[in-house]
Amino acid sequence: MTDARHPLTWWIWSITLAIGIARGNNPLLAIAVVGCAYLVVRKFRTDAPWSRSFESGLKLGLWILIIRTTFGVLIGTPIPGTTLFRLPILPVPEWMAGIRIGGAVTQERLFSTAREGVILAAIIICFAAASSLTSPHRLLRVLPFSIYQFGLALVIATSLVPQFVTSISRIRDAQYLRGQKLSFKKILIPLLEESLVRSLDLAAAMDSRGYGFTRVRSRYRAISWNPGDTIICLISAFSLLSPTLILISVATPFILIKRRVVVPAS
């Protein structure tokens, strides 16, 4: 793990990608960046629980795209142009004047909402890529003390997510074996109880291990900042000049980073 990138590097890298996508406002560019980011994630992620966040981000992004496009087409003011098909217009009360539900769906309208959806989804996927590549705990250790408390709360929340997933599948299995039809409630209640117990345990453990007792924390193994980190960050910063440059910045990790040392999990 020693030649892994500094966690901040990955976050700077992904944030500049997100900025580039937003500024470029070009769905093709966004898709290209996401594709390239996927290759980077596939090559550099470990087999840790959070390394799957990229897939979750991808799913979330797709959902956002679908929902946004549907709503964008259904609701809102029409953009004139080629009409693709017509939906029945839903009558709305008078006070909602100015909003139309249904009606003609034009090619222009569809394209513009889909394009906004793609860009939004791509930005989310960029953040998912960073969280796939960095351990939340490692990130926490490089944060300054002033935001440490805040960061810690976030890390605990995020590290609970993979545990949530295991708990959900365990509870779902148990309910299935009870011969029950699955419902949200039947899974949610045991899950919430378990998470509550778990968080209390964690808080008690941290408290009794002296967490937060001194303002200054020492570092067992300092996370070093290497020249490679500087280069990635510089290229990322440079790419802010023009959106198309992010295509270079997204690929820099490939040029620079040696293959990660795999820790045997025997």
């Binding site: 941290m206 291990r209 570092r219 067992y220």
Partner: peptide, 26 residues
């Protein structure tokens, strides 16, 4: 439920980091 870090070594060091023990002692 009480583990705060990812790996064995980091977990062992967590409490000492909180108490600001110097790295070489750790």
């Amino acid at each position: 439920n009480g583990f705060v870090t990812d790996t064995v070594e980091e977990e062992l060091a967590f409490g000492m980091e909180s108490l600001n023990v110097s790295p070489d002692v750790m």
